[in-house]
């Protein structure tokens, strides 16, 4: 079984990025999911970010698909991650 890859595109001096990281980590812990968030500096990976459609930070990418750009309230983020991970084999039931 392949675990989904979660990437958080961030930028230097972006306070909302750190908050988003905390929210995603809290979600993974709450759902007891053995997943890790990879932090990606958007400036260092500009070409890839543009190709993925990232237009601002923070941007959340799951298995190479952009699923969220900008800040999100915890409830909305939980619902979105539930939906995204449910689609994937071995995700949230």
């Amino acid at each position: 079984m392949t675990l989904p890859e979660i990437e958080l595109f961030t930028s230097p001096g972006c306070p909302r990025c750190a908050r988003m990281r905390g929210l995603v980590d809290a979600y993974l812990e709450y759902r007891k999911l053995p997943l890790r968030v990879s932090m990606v500096d958007v400036v260092a990976e500009l070409d890839r970010a543009v190709a993925l459609g990232v237009r601002a930070t923070p941007a959340l990418v799951i298995d190479g698909r952009l699923v969220l750009t900008g800040a999100a309230a915890p409830a909305r983020l939980h619902a979105l991650l539930d939906d995204e991970l449910r689609r994937m084999r071995g995700g949230v039931a």
């Binding site: 930028s11 230097p12 001096g13 972006c14 909302r16 958007v42 400036v43 500009l46 970010a49 543009v50 459609g53 990232v54 237009r55 601002a56 930070t57």
Partner: peptide, 13 residues
């Protein structure tokens, strides 16, 4: 798209 992204980063920093 690259320039738009860079400008958005600046606005948020």
């Amino acid at each position: 798209d690259e320039l738009r992204l860079l400008l958005n980063l600046c606005a948020a920093s």
